[in-house]
Design a protein around this nucleic acid. Sequence first.
DNA 1: TTTATGACGTAATTTGAAAGTTAGTCAATC
DNA 2: GATTGACTAACTTTCAAATTACGTCATAAA
Lengths: 244, 244
Amino acid sequence: MGSYGPYVSANAERLRDPRQRAERATRILDVAADLLLRHGYRRVTIDDVAEGAGIGKGTVYLHWKTREQLFGVVFAREVLYAMDELRQALRRDLEACLLHNFARVYFLAITDRPLLRGFLLADPHLLGKLTSSPDTARDERHGSMARDYLNLLAEYGLLRDDMRADEVGYAYQATFEGFLRAEGDAPAGGTEQWADLLARTVRRAFESEAAIPDARLRDLAAATVALLSGLIDADRAESGIPEG
Amino acid sequence: MGSYGPYVSANAERLRDPRQRAERATRILDVAADLLLRHGYRRVTIDDVAEGAGIGKGTVYLHWKTREQLFGVVFAREVLYAMDELRQALRRDLEACLLHNFARVYFLAITDRPLLRGFLLADPHLLGKLTSSPDTARDERHGSMARDYLNLLAEYGLLRDDMRADEVGYAYQATFEGFLRAEGDAPAGGTEQWADLLARTVRRAFESEAAIPDARLRDLAAATVALLSGLIDADRAESGIPEG
DNA sequence: TTTATGACGTAATTTGAAAGTTAGTCAATC
DNA sequence: GATTGACTAACTTTCAAATTACGTCATAAA
């Protein structure tokens, strides 16, 4: 079924202190992420995670139904971190909502996170079976958000007008993933420069040259943040992750 | 060591009819390609290939030193086919030497060849260990040809002037491979349309809007064909493949 | 009474040895 | 001189025993 919902037992519902519970969940996820990164999907056992978190194994199962779901949430949280970073950038700098800046920031947010990079590049060492069990509901949401965002850009006249918004979407994604894959064995010059090259490519390939007035930009940035926040909240709710 | 040179035994040198020899090599490669496509790298044995070609197993080893080299040449030949198709297009249509048309034609030449697609996407089912044993000499040649071609485009004023030629090269390659990867689970509409989207993306992202006079275009096309022919000949020589 | 645990049953994985294949060779054949 | 296929060593597959790890749940702790 592919949904990484939090396992809330009949008992857990009546937990006295939800805050402690959330803290423990976070600790478990932290340990799992660390072990996952250091040893890879196959070599990390639930016993390892429990020991690392200083709790009994049964306690882990009070939070998630299966090992796979636990690890699924680890990755879901990485995605949330990246999206949160993106949102912060959008709040800091209005121009971050322009597609090429969006691409640059998101690209760096991903490459800065080894687990996430492995996840998106479908590294079987880090991913295990998660590769083959995508979360359809989440994918749907993310696709929908991407469409909404691009339509927004189109409405603001910021996309080239000889390509439909959905075409830009597909082409943008292919380009983005191409750069992501190439980053590993990239040319000299750091990731920063590679992200910059991506940004310049995206700008020329998909954006119009129209200038946008400050007021409109502010509206657009706000709308983009709203869109992103909706997605973040939905993902958080689905995976039961409390904090960023 | 990664060079798929033809194995020419002391005996083979003195073969009476080199033409028959070449024909047999081609037949072996044809059979190998067919089996490779139908059964995958792991399931194809040299005995299968020999039987399919109607010869003894030892005869296969008169042509190539190892199984891996034989299969390496199968893929090398696929690349040659694609490059030859590209060259034909360049001869047919002068404008094919513009980067975006170049991309479109080459893209389709690749996606039309399942073995080649599998090769470039590093499909382990079709590739086996070949994935990890790249032919350094050939890679070098291809990289060099790519640089030469882009420098040529730059000299003719056909590349955007706010990106260095080598940057265009890296970005172009990342984009191209991104589209190639995405083609598998692409949106509705055939491969043709996907190639067209790639072409439009490449055009906007990397090309200048300068028009080029017919005479100059002819020169450029000729130079491009020359470049490509040099590469084709070098590859042919290295892998000992006789015909297209 | 609610929460946490780790021993336990079962299912999956690993191991290792034996059986089966196959790559590459070369003495025999054409 | 050119070709072959029986041959050997190396690799792969098989299969059962041994080990490991998941997920449960009776029990302990709070």
